[in-house]
């Protein structure tokens, strides 16, 4: 079976700055891949390319069977298959928690209100926030908001979930509750790609570590590379982290 995510020599520049200089790796179904590296190494850009928030300029990128390097990608199909959670939660502040979660199932999957409500209750229960249906985002803590954002993604039943530094804006106490949700998803077999600075978490949850350095995959492998890095750059990075 072909990988859920496959990058081959992917290139991306912003103006004259080349951010991805030929990135290749793949993620199999049911795997959890952690992208790590210094800021500016291109890991967030690589993740954003997977949801076509950035377009690539060279190489091949296939996500859930959609060839993003080819013209005429059906973005609506891609986004049905892929959920993404951002560092800044990006909940819709004018909608309640339930409305945030129900919006896409209603509009995109054309569910009835009752169906969408059921779905919202179900995914919010999965992230431990079943009692917050009627609350507005600003009434929730950062960790709760991020869990709602995860639930919002899950409500579309994606085949792949992307996480872009989802705990970087949270203080340590709140980080744990978000990471537990992600860990639970991993144990349920969800295919996930996470950009993260939480090395301990990556070691525990990820099947595959991709260390990016200067726009390339510098070293990759199983979680054991975090304990026994092969390259001096990764060793230095881990020491600093």
């Amino acid at each position: 079976m072909s990988p859920v995510v496959e990058l081959e020599d992917v290139r991306k520049s912003f103006g004259s700055l080349e951010v991805l200089k030929g990135v290749s790796f793949s993620v199999e179904r049911g795997q959890v891949a952690a992208l790590i590296g210094q800021s500016g190494s291109g890991k967030s850009t690589a993740l954003r390319c997977m949801d076509r928030l950035e377009t690539i300029q060279g190489g091949r990128l296939t996500v859930c069977g959609h060839a993003l390097h080819e013209p005429g990608v059906k973005l609506s199909d891609l986004r049905r298959d892929v959920g993404i959670v951002f560092q800044g939660y990006n909940l819709f502040p004018h909608l309640t928690v339930a409305q945030n979660v129900m919006l896409a199932p209603r509009l995109v999957r054309k569910m009835s209100k009752a169906q969408a409500k059921d779905r919202a209750e179900q995914v919010l229960a999965r992230v431990g926030l079943a009692e917050k249906l009627g609350a507005y985002p600003e009434q929730l803590s950062g960790g709760q908001q991020q869990r709602v954002a995860i639930a919002r993604g899950l409500a579309m039943e994606p085949k792949l979930m992307l996480f872009d530094e989802v705990t970087s804006a949270l203080d340590p106490q709140l980080t744990g509750e978000v990471l537990r949700v992600i860990e639970q998803l991993a144990s349920e077999g969800m295919t996930m790609v996470l950009v993260t600075h939480e090395m301990e978490f990556a070691r525990r949850v990820a099947d595959r570590i991709v260390y990016m350095h200067l726009g390339k995959v510098h070293e990759s492998g199983g979680p054991e590379i975090l304990t026994r890095p092969a390259t001096p750059e990764l060793a230095r990075f881990l020491e600093a982290a």
Binding site: A104, L107, V108, M156
Partner: peptide, 19 residues
């Protein structure tokens, strides 16, 4: 980011604008 979040949920341009 609001625009992007709505886009990533699969909302069309008109839906993103109006909702």
């Amino acid at each position: 980011p609001q625009w992007e979040a709505a886009e990533c949920l699969g909302l069309s341009r008109v839906q993103r604008m109006t909702r």
